[in-house]
């Protein structure tokens, strides 16, 4: 995957494949989920992508849901300059340990994060990631959660009691539905 990045007035604009450029993203296009960042610089975006992949690593997920997290960090940084500062300084200190964070192997990245896990910077990134990643319907699909149930009439007719690998409890313990 080749990505070219252009910096435009502080915003990161991605021109990937022709498909992405014309607005038709393909699944193979890992840059498809890459957001336009308003406040973070491209390097900060890339670093946060790597960092969020290490914090909650799910091999089955492509980059798109992690980019959504970076987008939300960007939004937080935009609306609160103290968050922007926290993120900028946090990334600087991550990069100041010899090589830049994004150049480290995955294992080394995890070790680097372990060292800073009690910092306000790490906590901020983790807490935004926790809320965004696990509230993302595309992530639910992969991890096996079905999300909102009301519009489908709940689970009363959709398998609330479909478990078949154990015997059914007697009716005295678990009466039949109405």
């Amino acid at each position: 995957m080749r990505r070219r990045e252009f910096l435009k007035a502080g915003a990161l604009v991605v021109a990937g494949t022709a498909a992405a450029a014309s607005g038709v993203a393909t699944i193979a296009d890992a840059a498809a989920g890459k957001p336009e960042l308003t406040t973070l610089r491209p390097h900060q975006g890339e670093t946060l992508l790597a960092m969020t992949r290490r914090i909650f690593p799910h091999k089955q997920l492509d980059d798109a849901p992690y980019w959504n997290v970076v987008r939300d960090i960007d939004t937080a940084a935009k609306s609160d300059s103290s968050v922007a500062k926290l993120i900028a300084e946090g990334i600087e200190s991550l990069d100041a340990q010899g090589r830049r964070f994004i150049e480290l192997a995955e294992k080394e990245q995890t070790i680097a994060l372990k060292r800073i896990e009690t910092t306000a910077f790490f906590q901020k990134v983790r807490s935004i990631e926790l809320q965004t990643l696990y509230s993302d319907p595309s992530v639910w699909k992969v991890l096996g959660y079905q999300g909102p149930a009301y519009k489908y009439g709940g689970y009363i007719h959709r398998g609330f009691d479909d478990l078949a690998w154990l015997p059914n409890p007697p009716e005295s313990a678990s009466p039949k539905p109405a």
Binding site: Y155, G159, F160, D161, D162, L163, L166, P167, N168, P169, S172, A173, S174, P175, K176, P177
Partner: peptide, 23 residues
């Protein structure tokens, strides 16, 4: 009516020797 989560609890509880188990 008990759901799947209850089915697991019920069967485990009975096998672990508990008696008062219901929805």
């Amino acid at each position: 009516p008990g759901n799947n989560n209850f089915k697991v609890m019920y069967n485990g509880a009975i096998r672990a020797g508990y008696k008062t188990v219901h929805t």
